[in-house]
Amino acid sequence: MIPFTLEKARNAEQAIAAAAAGARYIAGGTTLIDLMREEVERPERLVDINALPLAEIRVENDVLVIGALARMADVAAHPEVQARQPLIAESLIEGASPQLRNMASIGGNLLQRVRCPYFRMLDAPCNKRDPGSGCSALDGLHAGHAILGTSDHCIATHPSDLAVALVALDVTMRVLGPQGERSFPVEDLFRLPGNAPHLEHTLLPGELIIDVQVPAGAYSRRARYLKVRDRASYEFALVSAAVALDIEGGQIRQARIATGGVGTRPWRMRAVEEALAGKPPQRQAFEAAAQLAVREARPLRDNHYKMELLPRTIVRALELAGEVA
């Protein structure tokens, strides 16, 4: 590990000032310390934000507000989260391991780095780690990599499960920075790799995530997160789908679908959603619509199976959501 300084922020102003001067925020540390141990991340200065009052989970005018420092385990177990936004609870429980969920924060989860193995290996070219060095996965092994939103510079998937759920639910995030506060959809946090895969998100220098705000919708409770992987727990998704359905009178009024494990960012499936509007919540309609999910996909040698697995995962998640009473 490369030497660094660590300071503890007592309030947001202090934290933001430190970050604006080049410090990195540290919350649970489960991404950051891990990558610092491997010398992939090399911050010289860390500012510990755990003392800030940002761990609260509350409901304001029907909007569920989750503080950026709330722990994955606490959010997943929270009765308001489970009752109002079960999709969020499920996406959290399906992620990482109990030990990690006890440490890991919501803000950190959204900003976790990719799981591409070459990203972690300092002796392998990686545009995301060392801009311009090349992409080892493209001609190398990439069974776990993305089929959507890829570029010739990077094909890594965004690994967060929570982010998939938040993107499906049109969640807004609030950030505070040297220039003040702003809010924007979580979906806008994530950049496509394009020709600059080292730029992963749209936060401005020094901006601190304060909370995420989950609006209530008619679809919120008929919602499921399905994560498909080779072992039953403690593995990132091969493919995942977050689905929320508003069903009325035997017809889908509105479907919200986002997928993980397939895109370079959490991938909202708007074409599938539109195709489902007005249809009966039945398998035939699900299957027809799910085919649209791979219309623009670009599979590579090793990840062709995702072309098959993605629509199937969406179909199954839709079925599961449809079964919710």
């Binding site: 399905l226 498909v228 992987r229 080779d230 039953a232 493919v239 697995l309 199937r312 995962t313 179909v315 199954r316």
Partner: peptide
């Protein structure tokens, strides 16, 4: 699982 192929 006949849909998503998980084997347990």
């Amino acid at each position: 699982d006949p849909d998503v192929g998980t084997i347990r």
